[in-house]
Design a protein around this nucleic acid. Structure first.
Lengths: 349, 349
DNA sequence: TTTTAGCACTTGTTCTCTACGAGTGCTAAT
DNA sequence: ATTAGCACTCGTAGAGAACAAGTGCTAAAA
């Protein structure tokens, strides 16, 4: 069922006002505000219908109206006007890029910080672990009892561990280890390691097989451990400033969401992966009074992570959405661009 | 001024009771409890004196007594009995060690988690950044446009970066880079880099000097960036369960302490460095209702970090202290032991 | 048919007042 | 030195009144 033009105007005004003040909005308030040139009684009738249609609700009989989830949905889907980032805000956001951080992780962290400061809500970033398949191994002699074990993954990322051993090592032996690893373990992920490959690895080590167990344990650890999402969270306390969370129990529920970062990351990524654009979630995850805006970060077609904002359900969506979109657009430029460069280079030979 | 035996008993009983219930404790309550065989009137007199002496105070005229910071101090310094960790608790703590994590960082993280669960307070661990002096550099060829730059520090720690460049690189050239770095930059920390060493580095690169700027920038970044404390925090929401923090403003103050991790780490380390044992802090850092127990982690005479617990001022100190001490004792065994091994090995040649 | 003015009704908030309970300090007796 | 007794203080909980905000409905006006 379509909303009349006037209903849309009223719904928009109600939500705008509620977002600003946090107070239920009554019919009289709207006569003064908005460009509606009708009496409060008319507005009352319209609001009553909007309530029947599921866009508004009353906290109690004699209070004004408050938007429902459905109300917010239509608001962000079309009613709200676009927010133009101020010069000040653009400056803050651009600083994130000016610093020229090459790692996406730090870039998203500082963006998350900037956005939290700008919007005064909690902001977070999640980076999904990528390609856990080993492509190549290298070893590097450090001293008689330690060496660096380096794993180059299929996605180009690199992991390494400083391995300390009781026995003596020397560069020659380490070379053997690397060769044996490359011969038997390249291309594996942690589930792929078979008994056969382990045995072959030990065999290839020959006289140095004493070191096999240690090396295998480290590799197993490397394949698994870095395999976790990187989570950054900024401005948790900001949430506590909003009356929605002035009750400690609710505050607790909200903050608890960020407590177990692993779990949080999984929740976020499971919502981001199938989406290719920004999504808005109202009152989910046992947080009836919270809203979450989620922006997946996609580079070269792959969802590498997500950045988002959590605030009270009545948060300033247009500002939040504008900030997140500005960020993701520029990340796109920066990283897709870089990739094109790489491809150019690769064409040469 | 020394406290009489009876005053001590009373002070201890008051604090024990207050820690248990969180309610101000009155004279009548104590007659039933403790082994004091005196009337409430006598206790009243004693409590009145304890108040005059600064160990107790009254929230308001008709309420019971509550310990002052001074009261807590004498309590933890000698009045409280020792807490014996239950088998259950020992099991939880031991699991941390059984997992045989070699990195102190993860070890402290899981200990922090375990202790937070055990005590139901917030627990944190901080690891101080160590030795930022470069001892040796290595390079490792990855592909035509990228290589791994490895920095081995004087304290044995290792840092590395995956460097991507536009120009073509090859193993031979990388060897030159490593040699040039070792000749000019070994032993430096970020403040030590002089113009002279930079020029010499470029000179030694010879035909490959085009790569100098990139390499130098990466090294500068490595010297500085990893130079930050690693902070882990566990169980923040647990704080919110205590009436001390049921007011959102207070909760906010408490949680804000953990918000800026860098700042938090600095605060913690500055309190831990000069201490060689466990310290207890009452109501500091603008948190009048909080208490912090801090245990520096010292390995081979060096303070490498700290682990601690934050809870309401009336937290169960004996349990918290017992847990932290159990942990630090075992960390000592594990790591000092490992070090002895290393030294044995080194004696051989 | 749509809009509006008017009014009775509902409900939450704020304030005051009262009663109560917990705990103290003091006095006088033991 | 200890204790029983008692008057006093202060915070909390509850009841009731006054009030404000906002609604739905009715009937009149456009």
């Amino acid at each position: 069922m379509e909303l009349s033009e006037r209903k849309k105007k009223i719904l928009k005004s109600v939500i705008d006002s509620y977002i600003r003040t946090g107070e239920p909005v009554g019919s009289k308030l709207l006569t003064g505000t908005s460009d509606l040139q009708v009496s409060s009684a008319t507005i009352r009738n319209e609001m009553s219908e909007l309530e029947r249609m599921g866009y508004l609700e009353q906290p109690h009989a004699s209070a004004g109206r408050v938007p429902t989830a459905e109300g917010y949905r239509t608001y962000v889907d079309g009613l709200m006007e676009q927010y133009l980032l101020s010069l000040e805000e653009l400056k803050v956001l651009n600083e994130v890029f000016n610093y020229k951080v090459s790692e996406i992780e730090r870039l998203m962290e500082s963006a998350s910080h900037a956005i939290s400061e700008m919007t005064n809500y909690t902001s977070f970033s999640v980076i999904r672990p990528s390609g856990r398949n080993a492509k190549r191994f290298e070893t590097l002699y450090i001293d008689e009892h330690s060496f660096l074990l380096i794993m180059i993954c299929t996605d180009g990322s690199i992991r390494n561990r400083h391995v300390k051993v009781r026995m003596s090592v020397d560069p020659e032996m380490l070379k053997t280890v690397a060769e044996a690893l490359n011969a038997t373990m390249s291309g594996v992920c942690s589930e792929d390691v078979t008994l056969q490959s382990v045995l072959e690895f030990e065999e290839r080590l020959g006289a140095h097989s004493g070191i096999a167990a240690t090396v295998l344990r480290v590799i197993y650890d490397m394949l698994n451990s870095t395999n976790s999402e990187k989570v950054h969270i900024d401005g948790v306390t900001k949430l506590l400033s909003y009356p929605e969370f002035s009750d400690v129990e609710k505050a607790k529920d909200a903050i608890a969401l960020f407590e177990d970062r692993r779990d949080f990351a999984q929740k976020i990524m499971s919502r981001s992966t199938d989406e290719k654009g920004l999504t808005v979630h109202f009152g989910e995850a046992d947080l009836p009074d919270a809203g979450i805006v989620l922006q997946p970060i996609i580079i070269n077609g792959k969802t590498v992570g997500a950045i988002g904002v959590m605030g009270p359900k009545r948060m300033d969506y247009k500002k939040v959405i504008a900030s997140l979109q500005y960020f993701v657009d520029n990340v796109g430029k920066q990283f897709e661009g870089e990739d094109r460069n790489e491809q150019e280079h690769r064409k040469k030979p």
